[in-house]
Each structure stands twice: as structure tokens, then as C-alpha cells.
Design a binder for these strands. Structure first.
Lengths: 147, 147
DNA sequence: ATAATGTATATAGATTTAGTAGACTTTATT
DNA sequence: AATAAAGTCTACTAAATCTATATACATTAT
């Protein structure tokens, strides 16, 4: 399961994606629109900024904005930045690999092999889906509801 | 990420799967072969037994065994029994559904839509893969190493 | 009778997560 | 220059969860 931190990060990027090209948006506004605790969101946005995804502007009229086009930011990046696990086993994680202590032979572990397949399937989706895609999906869902 | 409980449960079922049709196998033996803390494994096997996956036999010569053929036990069942999350968001979980508190409209949430796709991909693999398949995969991995 | 095994419940320690607090810095506006 | 509106940074705490251990008990084979 993703942490709330990761969930909030994605949602914040989506709302900032919708705002791309406009004036920066305030933490307070994002927090209240997405119902995210403000102080918690502050930390998250700071992380995303330090990772180079967001720019920030201090002082009155300040706020946050995306550094690049939402079509160039992929969901998988957000998971990795916020420490959200992609793999279901540490031994199949690309970026947070850890040996399973109990495992006698990783190379022949059938369990690992299954979860390698799962990880690949997950990774494919998340690395092909951009923030812009997420926004597009919202549009489609809305259209479908109206029909 | 799966809990160790889930990981150990799958590994225990795999070793019991290899032993299917033989005399029951002792907790102690499973624990030492798979390097799982014995007392922890006791609880896990008990859960799997109470869920109807294993039978047990007390006393000397006792132990645990699979109730049904390893080809009829699917990895997805084990995750569900041991509380391992399949979905990455609570709002896309079939068996442990929970609304995302912060979400204004689940029906049009693009983030949810993406993770619904991820869940479906994961679920497909895990519900098509049996304990027998895991054992088969180990065989293939071993063969490939030898070549 | 004894030893080998599983059953059941409680509890403790460690880790992680989620959220809060508070003091500080920068910038626009008046 | 003063003030208010923002973001920055670090520390802390509360709660939950996970992992593991302890202990007493029940059953069965020999």
C-alpha cells in the first residue's frame, strides 16, 4: 500500500499540473482543495522541490509550480521520490533492493520470480503514466459519467 | 511491500507443496529449512490451518500438510489470508476497501483510475499463479542456471 | 509415563507513519 | 521602513503496525 505521503504527493502534482503555466499556487490552496493537512503537505512539497520537480516562490503571491510539463512527469518518479515501494518484495526492487534474509538462493527462488513478474507489470504502467495522463483520465471518467 | 508474515506464509506453503502426499512436516523443519523464526511461523501456520489451507497433526510424528493439491492453492489467497495488501490504494482494494478520506470524488479520481489498472494487472498474475506454479518456476530457474 | 509435537494468548520491542509545533527567511505591498 | 503573506527547516510526538518472543496448555505416539 502506498503511504499517504506518496498519495498526497501525486495528488498535489496533479492539481499543480492543471495549474501549469499559471501563477504559482499556494500550499494552503492545494491543502484545502485536496483535503490534505497543510503542515504535512509543506514537507512533501519541499521534498518534491528539492528533487527538482517543483519550483517555489516565497513571499506574498508566492507558491509552488511544476518545473516541467505534466506530460514529462511520470507517476513512477513520484513513488520513488517519496519512498513508496513499487516492488512487493525487497529482493525484486530496482531502487530499494535488499536481500530477503531468510532466502537461501535468490537466483532460484520461485516466489521471487512471481513477484518479479508483478513488479514488471506494475512498473510498466507507472512508468508509462504521466501526470498529464492522470489528468486526462479524470476527463474521461467525467465524460463517462455524463453519458 | 508484503509483510514478512505473508512472505513466510508463501514460502511455507511452497515447501509443504513439495512435500504434498508425504507425511506431515514439522514446524521446526520448515523453520530451519526456510530460516524463519519458529515461534513466528507457528502463528502463521495456525492461521493458514484455521483458514482451511492446512491440516495439522499433534504429538510425535505430527506436523502440517496441505489440505489440497498445490495446483489448487493460489498466491492471491495467501496474500488475502495474511492481510497482505494487493491494491496500492485502499480505494481500489476489493477485499479491504476503504475510502480515501481526502478524496472529493472517487468516481472521477484519475489517480484511483491508474491504481485500479495496476491492481488489475497484479491481481491477474497472483490469481493465476498457484503454489504448484511457484514450484515449477523454481525448477525452470534451476534448469536455466545449469545451461 | 514421557517426549514430541501443535494450540492459544499475551506481551514487548522496534520501526514506521502521520501529523504537529515553532522559529526562521524571503518577498510584495503599502 | 513596516507589515503581512508566503515558503523553509528541524525537531518532536502520538499512534499504529510489525516482528518476534514467552508461557502455559493440549494431544498423541511410543
Amino acid at each position: 500500500m502506498l503511504s499517504k505521503k506518496t498519495r498526497y504527493a501525486i495528488k498535489a502534482l496533479v492539481i499543480l499540473g492543471k495549474n501549469f503555466g499559471e501563477a504559482p499556487m499556494q500550499i494552503q490552496k492545494i491543502a484545502s482543495e485536496e483535503h490534505i493537512p497543510k503542515k504535512f503537505l509543506e514537507q512533501i512539497l519541499l521534498d518534491l522541490r528539492n528533487a527538482g520537480l517543483l519550483y517555489s516562490k516565497k513571499g506574498a503571491g508566492g507558491g509552488y509550480g511544476l518545473v516541467k510539463d505534466p506530460a514529462e512527469i511520470f507517476v513512477v518518479q513520484v513513488l520513488r521520490l517519496t519512498g513508496g515501494p513499487i516492488a512487493l518484495l525487497p529482493c525484486v526492487s530496482l531502487n530499494f533492493y535488499q536481500r530477503c534474509e531468510e532466502c537461501s538462493n535468490e537466483a532460484t527462488c520461485g516466489v521471487r520470480d512471481v513477484f518479479l513478474e508483478v513488479r514488471n507489470a506494475t512498473l510498466k504502467i507507472l512508468s508509462e503514466t504521466s501526470i498529464a495522463d492522470v489528468i486526462r483520465r479524470e476527463g474521461h471518467l467525467l465524460d463517462n459519467l455524463k453519458v
